[in-house]
Amino acid sequence: MKSALDNFDKAFENRIRLQIMSVLVANENYDFNSLKELLSVTDGNLASHLKALEKEKYIIVHKSFLGRKPNTTYAATENGRKAFRMHLQALENLIKQQK
């Protein structure tokens, strides 16, 4: 029981962070507004979770302009993908152990 939990990534303890990571792993990149609609969360909430993931170096931010509107897109880093895989593996192990 204990050993499986060791692999759990603290950064993914929060559900929204894990959801953000799922989207970024499945897509090359994703912009802030689409992410907000997909997860139905508020601006502030999403921004703070994105900051946390950025701090872990799991995602990178790319800021640009679409015409005059700022357009911020996010992409998963190699580190982030690896961490996501490990976390899923840990979840899987936990299920196996309990069987």
């Binding site: 894990l18 799922s22 792993v25 499945a26 897509n27 899923l88 979840l91 299920i95």
Partner: peptide, 17 residues
């Protein structure tokens, strides 16, 4: 919980892509 977590991950990956 784990199953619902995995389900939501899978659903989001599919829905976003």
């Amino acid at each position: 919980d784990i199953y619902s977590e995995l389900n939501s991950i899978r659903n989001l990956m599919e829905r976003s892509a």
